[in-house]
Design a protein around this nucleic acid. Structure first.
Lengths: 184, 184
DNA sequence: CCTCGAAACCGAGGATGCCTCATTTTAACG
DNA sequence: CGTTAAAATGAGGCATCCTCGGTTTCGAGG
């Protein structure tokens, strides 16, 4: 039934995809995730239709850019589940995600919006946070009834603050919330 | 020297200004502060040039919309300086501002950006926060070395969270941070 | 090689929004 | 009623988004 005889992907398609990702990364770093997609296409030496062919939405483009970085992050988060100090593990996780979300200005908003292609990342982030929270609670390291969702909200808010105040200022906010979350 | 013989303001100008403010309020409530200004002008039955004549920038329009509301808020904040429980006063202040910033989606970002015509409000907000923080510290009600700037950052972050998660979720974040900030 | 079909690319163009400015209208004043 | 200056107008230049019909190009099979 199912014809599994797939064609080899075209070389130009692969090349263009790479160029688009490279330029998008540069542009987003410089101007944030709201930057002009036409500009990205132009810089990549490609027509706008080509860009939209590869990445139907802005969220799809962002998601593709994050893929490699995400793999690393998730691995780190999974590793933290073995960490001897559950409270420390949770705090480290949150800090790592906040740093991660600082890659592009506007990324925090995109994540918080859970837009289309980014939903998977959000779920994964929440799941890992949840696991670490549960472990921390089991160890009696939590003050209140914090949940995985709380952790996700906190991460986003802290990442957002980083884009508007200084990183140092945002870190103070994060420390405040962590102090309220973690016992002792 | 100075010619003080000012002309009376024109009736149509006043009328249009009011209509613009009314429609802008409605549109911003529905779509956030990023809504189309052309749409606002259209709904107000006025040409776009007229809108820009009254409010040269988006921030100016937002600032005008906030004016009345702000007066009330600042008065409340000033009143809190007499409150018998300084810790409670600080927490109440923060919660009030967060509620205030929930008027339009996008307002938190506009405030955090301290864009042009909104700067005054920001300074005022920070000043009031600073006063309440100082009083709370003097009463030994603060855990760390929290500053007025920390309070401003927290307010904005909490307000922003409200726009992306549920209000309940944002309140949990706020409670977390307050727990980290206020002793006992 | 060469041919063919599908996949990818192209870029004009409609839609929307921002903001300006030369021109026209109109309210206030005498 | 004029006069006059403030205010309103709305076309138009520019940027961006996204789509779609037509064209090119790659890869596979002969």
């Amino acid at each position: 039934m199912a014809e599994t005889a797939r064609r080899r992907p075209r070389a130009d398609a692969l090349r263009n995809r790479e160029r688009l990702l490279a330029e998008a990364d540069a542009v987003f770093r410089a101007e944030g995730t709201g930057a002009s997609l036409e500009g990205v296409a132009r810089r990549a030496g490609v027509a706008t239709g080509t860009l939209y062919g590869h990445f139907p939405t802005r969220a799809a483009l962002i998601a593709a850019l994050l893929e490699a970085r995400n793999r690393e992050l998730f691995e780190y988060g999974d590793g933290l589940a073995e960490h001897p100090d559950p409270a420390r593990a949770l705090a480290d996780w949150i800090r790592a995600v906040v740093r991660h979300a600082a890659a592009y200005q506007g990324l925090a908003a995109a994540l918080a919006a859970r837009s289309g292609e980014l939903q998977d990342s959000c779920h994964r982030l929440t799941a890992i946070g949840e696991r670490l929270v549960d472990r921390a609670r089991a160890a009696g390291a939590l003050r209140g009834d914090t949940t995985g969702a709380d952790v996700f909200t906190l991460m986003n808010a802290a990442a957002w603050a980083r884009e508007h105040d200084t990183p140092a200022q945002a870190d103070r906010l994060l420390d405040l919330a962590l102090a309220g979350m973690i016992a002792r």
